[in-house]
Design a protein around this nucleic acid. Structure first.
Length: 674
DNA sequence: TAAGCGACTTAGCAGAAAACAC
DNA sequence: GTGTTTTCTGCTAAGTCGCTTA
């Protein structure tokens, strides 16, 4: 990598070159680094040139159509220049336009993907956008008078505002959340803001509030909904369908597209994940006055509900969202965007996997580089190299810095602290083992014991030297520095691309290893799920075991036992039929033997299917396959595998997934390689 | 150059819907 | 047809990363 370029951009290297703007902590770091690394000066020009060459190669493949053609060409000759690619693209484009204008209009129907029809430059995402705006949460319906709230054992009639917030709490009463101190404290504080001054003076202690009648009322309502007649249920379904048809679609550049989340989030109590400091806070109701509408000038603008107005109507075609508002808990912006099946999302998805495929081509070089950097004389480079090694080997997330006290205490690679690692010179017969134990995204625990290379181990010892448990492991690194470095190694490369790349390549390798064409379809699907599972484990995609897990496993075992008995019976019958046929030697008994044989075969197949199902389910107990399937695995690998092994695609992707991956289903042939 | 913002992707969970068993 | 189990879908929180601003 080009150390000099990165060095100039880094404040730490400015220090090395004698900048006057030194703060004391930097000086401390520098002195320490010098001491530890026995710093010597100098950077390699050769390396710089070499990197420029390599960068040139990787720059091949920018843009969309350009991107695709360049990818193909770069496979033929890795040294091909941008200019040549551009020239070729232009030629192809001119030819295509000619063909389209004069010959092919009638064949437009056969264009495989409509998102290949038109592409914009300069960040333009669309030319025309029309929609009906969002669907607001239904207004609050006050409780019937017989449903009472009690304070300190006495009935108390609440004002509508206070009552609404109280119902949010009552609805969650059975949830563990409402027992947590932080939740209760936050809730009570926000609830008091909605109370009248009289209520405020009376309701001083949440522990004296009795929401149980409210809670019972909502439970009864839920039961009543379940017990509705078919006709009533159908009526609701039809109404939902009507709303979907009216608000659930938009027109973007000549195409009707499905909107992902056209309903505004209803008010309620914020439920953060893990130990979130803001859990229990009131998520306020969103009104039309909070809403920004985005659509094209020449479209029919959505109308706000009667008597209200939008916060703003804008026409920004460099973004993909239709509606936005600012939520009150974190002050972040929420959006209404298009469904994953839309052109705009599908195209982005495709680009993501193409980027990961580009990484595949240069990952060996990048790995060699970071291994080399483990020996660097600069601490920041060593830290960067070790962090990158973790991101690559363990598929860790980048780990942006977070504002303390605003969210749950979770970390990723760059934000790991000393307390999250334990180093073992020797463990379970292996040398240089690193034990990771930290909370990652969504407060999901990452626990792993990994043997690492000696040099990594020694570096980690160095990084942890003289530090407190709560100190940053990589004190000279953050995601911005890391991604700038990655950008130097490959155009467009960021930390998250490694997760996509490693997930997809793992799936492909596992499928090749685990499946053969001789297997039957259930066995092939079991293997597919196992390959998928390997990826989910790599990416640490966990789930809470389903509440009914034990019971459902028991049921399955009962079925297996019954099937085994049935098989034993069938085998006995076959044996006696054979004996019978030996004595009689007539056609009838021969036929009987054949039919018993078939019965045994059929039951054996059924038994195998059940056993496979049990294995699959057991192995899947705490692992979520969906996340990797939807976000990390190049769908063309799965499509190609299905085509090659004769597995119906419906067995791998359900309807929604097939819609999302329509581009891949159409694009990938059986010989596709990631 | 750090901090903050904006736009977007990635994530697990809960409830609805579909499939299955009886 | 009804109750139970499994799968799917919607919801929205929580990340990543690029850009702007002070």
């Amino acid at each position: 990598m080009d150390q000099t370029i990165v060095a100039i951009r880094s404040r730490h290297v400015l220090l090395h070159f004698g900048s006057e703007h030194r703060d004391s902590s930097d000086k401390k770091h520098r002195d320490k680094d010098k001491e530890r690394l026995k710093l010597k000066d100098g950077s390699s020009d050769k390396q710089k040139d070499k990197h420029k060459e390599k960068k040139k190669e990787e720059r091949v493949g920018r843009g969309l159509c350009y991107f695709y053609i360049a990818t193909v060409l770069s496979e033929l000759n890795p040294l091909i220049t941008n200019a040549l690619v551009l020239a070729l693209c232009t030629a192809v484009l001119v030819a295509c336009v000619g063909m389209l204008v004069y010959i092919l209009p009638s064949l437009c129907f056969f264009i495989p993907f409509r998102w290949e029809e038109e592409r914009y430059t300069d960040g333009v995402k669309w030319k025309f956008l029309e929609h009906k705006g969002p669907v607001f949460a239904p207004p609050y319906e006050p409780l019937p008078s017989n449903v009472k709230f009690y304070y300190d054992g006495k009935h108390m009639k609440l004002s509508p505002g206070a009552e609404e917030v109280a119902t949010f709490f009552a609805k969650m009463l059975d949830h563990e959340y409402t027992t947590k101190d932080v939740f209760r404290k936050n809730f009570f504080k926000d609830w008091r803001k909605e109370m009248t001054s009289e209520e405020k003076s009376k309701l001083a202690d949440l522990n004296k509030c009795d929401f149980s009648e409210m809670s019972e009322y909502f439970k009864a309502q839920s039961e009543a909904r379940k017990a509705m007649t078919k006709e009533e249920k159908l009526k609701i379904k039809e109404e939902n369908e009507r709303i979907l048809q009216e608000y659930g679609f938009c027109v973007m550049d000549n195409h009707k597209e499905r909107i992902a989340n056209f309903r505004i989030e209803p008010p309620g109590l914020f439920r953060g994940r893990g130990d979130h400091p803001k859990m229990g806070m009131l998520k306020r109701r969103i009104r039309p006055e909070d809403i920004i509408i985005n659509c094209s000038k020449d479209s029919k603008h959505p109308k706000p509900p009667p008597g209200t107005k939008w916060k703003e109507v804008r026409h920004d075609n460099k973004v993909t969202w239709l509606v936005s508002w600012t939520e009150n808990i974190q002050g972040s912006i929420k959006y209404i965007m298009l469904n994953p099946s839309s052109r705009i999302k599908g195209e982005k998805d495709w680009q993501k996997y193409e980027m990961a495929r580009r990484l595949k081509k240069c990952v060996d070089r990048i790995r060699a580089q970071y291994r080399e950097d483990w020996k660097s004389k600069e601490m920041r480079i060593r830290q960067r190299a070790v962090a990158l090694y973790f991101i690559d080997k363990l598929a860790l997330r980048a780990g942006n810095e977070k504002e303390e006290g605003e969210t749950a205490d979770t970390v990723g690679c760059c934000s790991l602290r000393v307390e999250h690692l334990t180093l073992h010179q020797e463990m379970d017969g292996q040398e240089y083992v690193v034990e990771f134990d930290f909370l990652g995204k969504d407060s999901i625990r990452y626990y792993n014991k990994v043997p690492v290379e000696k040099r990594v181990f020694k570096n980690l010892q160095l990084f942890m030297e003289d530090k407190e448990p709560e100190d940053d492991l990589f004190d000279r690194l953050n995601t911005s520095i890391l991604n700038k470095h990655l950008q130097e190694l490959m155009d467009g490369l960021t930390a998250k691309v490694f997760r996509t790349y490693n997930a997809s390549i793992t799936l492909q390798q596992q499928l090749n290893e685990l499946t053969t064409s001789e297997d039957n379809v259930p066995a092939k699907i079991l293997s597919y799920n196992r390959a998928n599972r390997a990826v989910a484990i790599l990416c640490n995609h966990q789930r809470a075991p389903p509440k009914t897990f034990e019971k459902s496993m028991q049921n399955l075992q009962t079925k297996i036992d019954a099937k085994k008995e049935q098989l034993a019976d069938a085998k006995r019958e076959l044996k006696s039929a054979k004996a019978d046929a030996k004595v009689r030697r007539d056609e009838k008994s021969k036929k009987a033997v054949e039919s018993k044989k078939k019965a045994v075969q059929r039951i054996e197949e059924q038994l195998m299917k059940l056993e496979v199902q049990a294995t699959d389910r057991e192995e899947n107990k705490q692992i979520a396959l969906g996340t990797s399937k939807l976000n990390y695995l190049d769908p063309r690998i799965s499509v190609a595998w299905c085509k090659k092994l004769g597995v119906p695609i419906e067995k791998i992707y359900n309807k929604t997934q097939r819609e999302k991956f329509a581009w891949a289903i159409d694009m990938a042939e059986k010989d596709y390689e990631f």
